[in-house]
Nucleic acid binder design. Structure first.
Length: 813
RNA sequence: GCCCGAGUGGCGGAACCAGGUAUACGCGCAGCACUUAAAAUGCUGUGAGCCUAAAGCUCGUGUCGGUUCGACUCCGACCUCGGGCACCA
C-alpha cells in the first residue's frame, strides 16, 4: 500500500490542470457564467503570507463548489503591483521597482500556483504593465471629459515620510495609512475625482447590496450623511456673516460662536478687514499661529483639553434676540460643516466643556424625562439631540418635544431667511495625484497657450519611463519632474512646447476597475468588450479584506456608477452583487508583521505537510469571516484526516448501501452543501470528519461512499482527491464532476430518539418509530414506563408538553 | 463618545438564523493495544463538583433581570475583549 506523501503528486496535478486549462472557461460561449472574484494581492512584501493564502483558499473552495454545481466559473488572478506599496518595498530592498516587478511577479505566481487555487492562468492582469495602465489612463481621460476630474489648489494631506499627498481615505486618525507617520497639510495644486457628486447614490445603493454588514456600516459612516441647517449670524458693526452648520439648532440656548482657526473670518481679523482692538488682534494671532504650527494628529490628541481665544466680535442670534461673542478654538475643524459652530453648552458636550472653561453662560432649554429644570452644571446633565425631552425657556417652542422643537426652529429660520436646510456629507472628493514614480502618469499636458490639454486617446499609453532616480524627493513634485525627456512635449492642440503632468495617479485607481479588464485581457483595442462585460459582470461573489471598506470597495463602486452614466456599460451600476469579508489569521495572538517576527510563510508548511493539509487546516481553524490563531500543533488533525481517507481506499468493496450507510452519506452531503453559500467551511469539514469516523468503523466501504466523500472534499483538498479519483479508476478530472445529489428521503430515520424531561430536566430518552411520533398518547405511555420518569412523576399532578419528534416534558404542579 | 463583532471545557470551536438531550469536530491530555524499545498507528476515556466506585444527584454557555413548560439561543440593563469611526457641530 502506497503511503500518503503529498509531494509525490501535488505539483504534478497543478501542472496538468494548468496545461489542460480546465479552469479557463470559454468566456464567450459559457452558458452559466459565474464570476468568483478574490481581491488580487499587491506583491510588496517578501511573498505571500499565510493570511493571504487563507483568504485565497476560502474564495477558491466556494468557486470550486460553484463549478461542481454546473456553473462556468471564472476565477481570475492578477497582481496589483503598481503604486506606493510596491515602490516603498523597492526602496527598502534598494532595487528599481521596474526590475523588481519582474522578480515579484514570478515569485507570486509561483506561490499562487502552489496553493492549489483553480485560477484561470490564461487571463492574468498586472496593473503595472502598459497594456493595463493604458486603460487606467484612458479612464482618467473619460473622467476629465465628463467633468468628473478637476484640478484645484487646495490644502491637502501630505505624508512627510512617503513624500506624497494622500486621499482622505488614506489618513487614519491623522496618520498615514501606509507608514503611520503624522500627516501634515500642504497647499498644492492637485487632481481630484468628484466622488462627492455620487455621495447620495453611493449611500442609497448600499441598501440593495448583499454585503458583509460591517463593510456596509463602514461605508455608511464614511459617507456620513447629515441633515441639518446652515444658520446665518450677522457680525455686529460689519457686513460679514458667520454661517454655522448644525443638526440641532438650539438657538434659545446658544450663548457663543466658535470658529475654526482656518476660518475666513479669522483671516479677515488678521488682515484688518474686520476691525478689533489691537490687543484682541494680537491675542488671536498668537493663538492661531500656535494651533497651525501643530501637526494634525497632535492637534486631535491634545484637543480633549479645550483651548480658545475671544475675537472681540459679537454676532446676532436673531432667533433668540440676543448677541453672542465670537470665539476661536482648535476643536472646531475647518473641513467639518462650515468650520463654525454655534455654541449651545446645555445641549452639546463639547460646547459645555468650552463654556465651563471660559465662563460662558449655560442655558437649559430642554427639560429631561425626569422633569428636572435646574441649571446644567455637570457633563452628565447635558441633553443632546436624540434624547427625550421637552422644550423650556424657548418662547414659542415651549412645551414641544425636543425633536419637534428643533424642526420648528428650522422652519422658523427658513421662513425668516436666517437659515437654510442643507444635507452635508463627510465624504470628500477623491484626491488622485501622487508625487511618486511608480504609477500611471496622469495623461495631461499643460500648454501656455491652450491651458490644460488631455493627451489624445490615440497617444495612450503615456509610458512610464525607466528613471534611474525614482525615489521621492519630497519637494512636492514627482521624480518624473526631473526627466526632461518625459515632461517636454508638444502641445497636442497647437504644437508648441508644452509640459506634461508629472504626477502619477493613486494606486487605488488601478484597482478600482481591474475586474472589468479580467474579462477582456486579449483585447488591446479597448478596456473591455461590452459583450464580455454584459455576460460576466457584475461580479457574483467577491471576497476580500474588510480593511478596504472605504478605500477600494468605495472607489470601485464610484467608477462603476460613472461607467454606467457615461454609457460605457449599460446593465448595472454596482460592481459586486455579493461581498464577503474574510477574517484575519493571527499568529501568537497578534497580527502578523515583520517587526514582530511572527509572519508565517506558507511555503515551508506546504513542503512539509502538503498544500491540501494546509488548506484544510486553515479552513478548520474557525469561521471564515472570523479568522483565528495559527497554531502548528493543530495541523495534525487535518493531516490525520487526509491520511485516513488515503488509507480508506483499501476497504472499497462492491457492495450495496445499507439504510444506515445512506443516512450518513446524505447527512454529510446535506451539511457540506448547505455550509457552502455561507462559507462555513469549518463545520463542513467537521461533518466530513464525522462521516469518516463512521466509515472507518465499518469493515468495508462501498465505491459510492468513497466517491461521494472525494467529491465533497474536492474543493477543500483538490490534489489528494484528484489523485485518489485517478487511483480508483475514475475519469479525469474530479473537479469537472457534478456535485453529489442529495436524497432527502435517505435522511429520515426509522427510529427517533426523544428526550423525556420532568420539569425541564432530562430524565430519560425513549425510542419511537418515525411513523408513530405523532401518536401522542402512545408516546406518553411509553415515557411513563421509564423508571426515572416514574420516579419524578409518581403521585404528582402534571401537565404534558409534547413537541412531536422533538421533546416530551412533564411539568408537575 | 458612536457604530460593528465576539464572550461556551485545558485550547480552536459546534449548537444561535427558526428556543427543545449544551460542549459536535479537531487539538491537547490520560490509559490500553502493537513494539525489545521508541516513533508511527489503532482503540478507549476526557465540563466541574459530591461519591471508594457505580448508579445517581447538583452546578455549568461573561454579569444581573425578564419572557417561557423549557433560554447558549429571544427581550432589557450592564461588564469585558477585539475591530472600525471620531471634538462630524
Amino acid at each position: 500500500m502506497r503511503k500518503y506523501i503529498p509531494k509525490q503528486f501535488e505539483s504534478k496535478w497543478q501542472q496538468k490542470w494548468k496545461k489542460d486549462k480546465i479552469f479557463s472557461p470559454d468566456l464567450d460561449k459559457a452558458r452559466k457564467p459565474y464570476f468568483a472574484l478574490m481581491m488580487f494581492p499587491y506583491p510588496s512584501a517578501e511573498g505571500l503570507h499565510v493570511g493571504n493564502m487563507y483568504a485565497f483558499t476560502g474564495a477558491d473552495i466556494f468557486a470550486r463548489f460553484m463549478r461542481m454545481q454546473g456553473y462556468d466559473v471564472f476565477e481570475p488572478i492578477g497582481l496589483d503591483g503598481f503604486g506606493i506599496h510596491s515602490e516603498n518595498y523597492a526602496i527598502k530592498v534598494n532595487k528599481h521597482p521596474m526590475d523588481l516587478s519582474k522578480v515579484t511577479e514570478e515569485r507570486f505566481y509561483k506561490q499562487l500556483t502552489s496553493i492549489g487555487n483553480a485560477f484561470d492562468w490564461t487571463r492574468t492582469v498586472e496593473t503595472y504593465k502598459p497594456d493595463y495602465y493604458k486603460w487606467t489612463q484612458w479612464i482618467f481621460l473619460q473622467m476629465y471629459k465628463n467633468g468628473l476630474a478637476y484640478r484645484k489648489k487646495a490644502e491637502v494631506n501630505w505624508c512627510p515620510s512617503c513624500k506624497t499627498v494622500l486621499a482622505d481615505e488614506q489618513v487614519i486618525a491623522g496618520k498615514c495609512e501606509r507608514c503611520s507617520s503624522n500627516v501634515t497639510k500642504k497647499m498644492l495644486e492637485q487632481w481630484f475625482f468628484k466622488i462627492t457628486q455620487y455621495a447620495e447614490r453611493l449611500l442609497k445603493n448600499l441598501d440593495t447590496l448583499d454585503w458583509s454588514k460591517k463593510v456596509l456600516t463602514a461605508q455608511r459612516n464614511w459617507i456620513g450623511k447629515k441633515v441639518g441647517i446652515n444658520m446665518d449670524y450677522p457680525i455686529k458693526n460689519s457686513k460679514e456673516v458667520i454661517t454655522c452648520f448644525t443638526t440641532a439648532p438650539v438657538n434659545f440656548g446658544m450663548t457663543f460662536i466658535v470658529l475654526a482657526p482656518e476660518h475666513q473670518v479669522v483671516k479677515k481679523i488678521l488682515d484688518g478687514t474686520l476691525r478689533v482692538s489691537r490687543e484682541q488682534k494680537q491675542a488671536v494671532k498668537k493663538y492661531v499661529d500656535g494651533v497651525l504650527a501643530k501637526p494634525l494628529a497632535q492637534r486631535i490628541s491634545e484637543a480633549k483639553e479645550k483651548t480658545g481665544v475671544f475675537t472681540g466680535l459679537y454676532a446676532q442670534n436673531r432667533i433668540a434676540g440676543w448677541d453672542v461673542p465670537v470665539w476661536i478654538a482648535d476643536f472646531v475643524m475647518s473641513e467639518v460643516g462650515t468650520g463654525a459652530v454655534q455654541g449651545c453648552p446645555g445641549h452639546d458636550y463639547r460646547d459645555f466643556e468650552f463654556a465651563k472653561k471660559f465662563g460662558l453662560p449655560i442655558i437649559r432649554v430642554v427639560k429631561g424625562p425626569d422633569g428636572n429644570t435646574s441649571p446644567i452644571e455637570k457633563p452628565e446633565q447635558v441633553i443632546v439631540r436624540g434624547m427625550k425631552g421637552t422644550m423650556v425657556n424657548s418662547k414659542f417652542l415651549n412645551g414641544l418635544p425636543f425633536d419637534q422643537g428643533l424642526e420648528k426652529t428650522m422652519d422658523y429660520a427658513e421662513e425668516k431667511r436666517w437659515g437654510k436646510r442643507v444635507v452635508s456629507y463627510h465624504l470628500r472628493d477623491w484626491l488622485i495625484s501622487r508625487q511618486r514614480y511608480w504609477g500611471p502618469p496622469i495623461p495631461m499636458i499643460y500648454c501656455d497657450t491652450c491651458g490644460t490639454v488631455p493627451v489624445p486617446e490615440k497617444d495612450l499609453p503615456v509610458i512610464l519611463p525607466y528613471v534611474e532616480n525614482f525615489r521621492p524627493a519630497g519637494t512636492g513634485v514627482s521624480p518624473l519632474a526631473s526627466d526632461e525627456n518625459f515632461y517636454k512635449v508638444k502641445c497636442p492642440k497647437c504644437g508648441k512646447e508644452a509640459k506634461r503632468e508629472t504626477d502619477v495617479s493613486d494606486t487605488f485607481l488601478d484597482s478600482a476597475w481591474y475586474f472589468f479588464r479580467y474579462t477582456s485581457t486579449e483585447d488591446s483595442t479597448q478596456p473591455w468588450t461590452s459583450e464580455r462585460v454584459k455576460k460576466w459582470l457584475p461580479v457574483n461573489t467577491y471576497i476580500g479584506g474588510a480593511e478596504h471598506s472605504v478605500l477600494h470597495l468605495l472607489y470601485s463602486r464610484f467608477l462603476t456608477m460613472v461607467f454606467k452614466d457615461i454609457d460605457l456599460i449599460s446593465h448595472f451600476e454596482e460592481p459586486f452583487t455579493r461581498f464577503r469579508a474574510h477574517g484575519l489569521i493571527i499568529s501568537e495572538g497578534a497580527k502578523m508583521s515583520k517587526s514582530k517576527g511572527n509572519v508565517i510563510n506558507p511555503d515551508e508548511y506546504i513542503s512539509e505537510y502538503g498544500t491540501d493539509t494546509l488548506r484544510l487546516y486553515l479552513m478548520f481553524i474557525g469561521p471564515f469571516d472570523q479568522g483565528g490563531d495559527f497554531r502548528d500543533e493543530a495541523i495534525s488533525g487535518p493531516q490525520n484526516f487526509l491520511r485516513r481517507i488515503w488509507n480508506l481506499k483499501e476497504k472499497i468493496e462492491d457492495r450495496t448501501l445499507t439504510t444506515e450507510d445512506a443516512k450518513w452519506l446524505h447527512k454529510t452531503v446535506e451539511k457540506v452543501t448547505s455550509d457552502m453559500p455561507s462559507l462555513k467551511f469549518n463545520t463542513a469539514i467537521a461533518s466530513m470528519m464525522e462521516w469518516l469516523n463512521f466509515l472507518s468503523k465499518k469493515k468495508f466501504v462501498t465505491k459510492k461512499e468513497y466517491k461521494s466523500l472525494l467529491l465533497l472534499l474536492a474543493p477543500y483538498a483538490p490534489h489528494i482527491t484528484e489523485e485518489l479519483w485517478n487511483q480508483i479508476g475514475e475519469e479525469y478530472s474530479i473537479h469537472l464532476q457534478a456535485w453529489p445529489k442529495l436524497d432527502v428521503e435517505a435522511l429520515t430515520d426509522e427510529m427517533v430518539t426523544i428526550p423525556v424531561q420532568v420539569d425541564g430536566k432530562v430524565r430519560s430518552t425513549i425510542r419511537i418509530k418515525y411513523q408513530e411520533v405523532s401518536i401522542q398518547n402512545q408516546v406518553i405511555e411509553k415515557a411513563l414506563k421509564e423508571e426515572r420518569v416514574k420516579k419524578y412523576t409518581d403521585g404528582k399532578k402534571y401537565k404534558v408538553i409534547y413537541v412531536p419528534g422533538k421533546i416530551l416534558n412533564f411539568v408537575t404542579s
